[in-house]
Simulated scan of single mutants.
Amino acid sequence: MRMTVADVMTSKVVFVTAATSFKDIAEALITGGVSAVPVLDDDDHVIGMVSEADLLRKEEFREEFYCEGYRPPLRARLRHPKGRRKAEGDTAAELMTRRAITIFPDASAVSAARLMDAHDVKRLAVVDYNGRLQGIVSRCDLVKLFVRGDEVIAAEIRDDILDRALGFPNTPAGPEA
């Protein structure tokens, strides 16, 4: 059966706005039990994503601003050339990754996994065709597909074959002619 993003996504999403402060973003991540939040504009369009890594850059580069002569490790400068800009940020608009990778709810779960891999991200904002937030799909959401019970998988196969391929509705009494 073709599992869609809508089948596995989280619909109740913790989010912030562009003006949300650093401290309030950290609080949202902690209380929401998530590692990133989408940043929304006034019309619920996704304009970016702020992750724990974005917040940690502030701490990583903190000494650079307070200690004379401090330079972050070379690997940090090479891996995160925008780190200094983000480290100076105080709001979601200044801290966020500006181009959030998005996907539509009717896309396949396989497409979501491929998109995450192609962009090296851990989550995708799920948006409707107007770009408004509908949910989040994470790698964990996709991994859950592997632990479904045999009965669930068998029912999905029956539904897929009988209903979609043959055009028969699958009812508890069996297909009706």
Rank of each mutant, 00 (worst) to 15 (best):
R2E: 14
M3F: 15
M3T: 12
T4N: 05
T4G: 03
T4R: 06
V5K: 00
A6F: 04
A6H: 07
A6W: 02
D7W: 00
D7N: 11
V8T: 04
V8C: 08
M9S: 01
M9I: 04
M9N: 00
T10I: 06
T10K: 01
S11I: 09
S11V: 08
S11A: 13
K12Y: 04
K12N: 07
V13P: 00
V14K: 02
V16K: 01
T17N: 10
T17Y: 07
A18G: 13
A19F: 14
T20F: 06
T20G: 07
T20M: 10
K23E: 15
D24K: 09
D24Q: 12
D24Y: 05
I25T: 03
I25V: 15
A26C: 10
A26K: 07
E27G: 10
E27K: 15
E27Q: 14
E27S: 14
A28D: 02
A28T: 07
L29K: 03
L29M: 09
I30C: 09
I30P: 04
I30G: 11
I30Y: 13
T31N: 14
T31E: 15
T31P: 06
T31Y: 11
G33V: 08
S35R: 13
S35Q: 12
V37N: 03
V37W: 00
P38T: 02
P38Q: 03
L40G: 00
L40E: 03
L40F: 02
L40Q: 00
L40N: 00
L40D: 00
L40T: 02
D41R: 04
D42S: 14
D42L: 11
D42F: 09
D42R: 14
D43R: 10
D43K: 09
D44A: 08
D44W: 02
D44N: 10
D44Y: 06
H45T: 03
H45K: 09
V46F: 01
V46I: 03
I47V: 15
I47G: 04
I47L: 10
I47Y: 04
I47W: 04
G48S: 08
G48Y: 00
G48T: 02
G48V: 01
V50I: 09
S51D: 02
E52N: 08
E52K: 11
E52H: 06
E52L: 08
E52D: 13
A53T: 15
A53E: 12
D54T: 08
L55F: 05
L55T: 01
L56D: 09
L56T: 12
K58H: 12
K58L: 06
K58F: 05
E59T: 12
E59C: 11
E59D: 10
E60W: 12
E60H: 13
F61L: 10
F61C: 07
F61Q: 03
R62C: 05
R62F: 09
E63P: 01
E64R: 10
E64P: 02
F65T: 06
C67Q: 10
C67F: 05
C67D: 07
G69Y: 02
G69A: 07
Y70D: 03
Y70H: 06
Y70W: 05
R71D: 13
L74Q: 14
L74A: 15
R75Q: 14
A76I: 15
L78W: 11
L78K: 13
R79I: 14
R79Y: 12
R79G: 13
R79F: 12
H80P: 07
H80Y: 15
H80M: 12
H80L: 10
P81I: 09
P81M: 10
P81K: 11
P81E: 11
K82Y: 14
K82A: 13
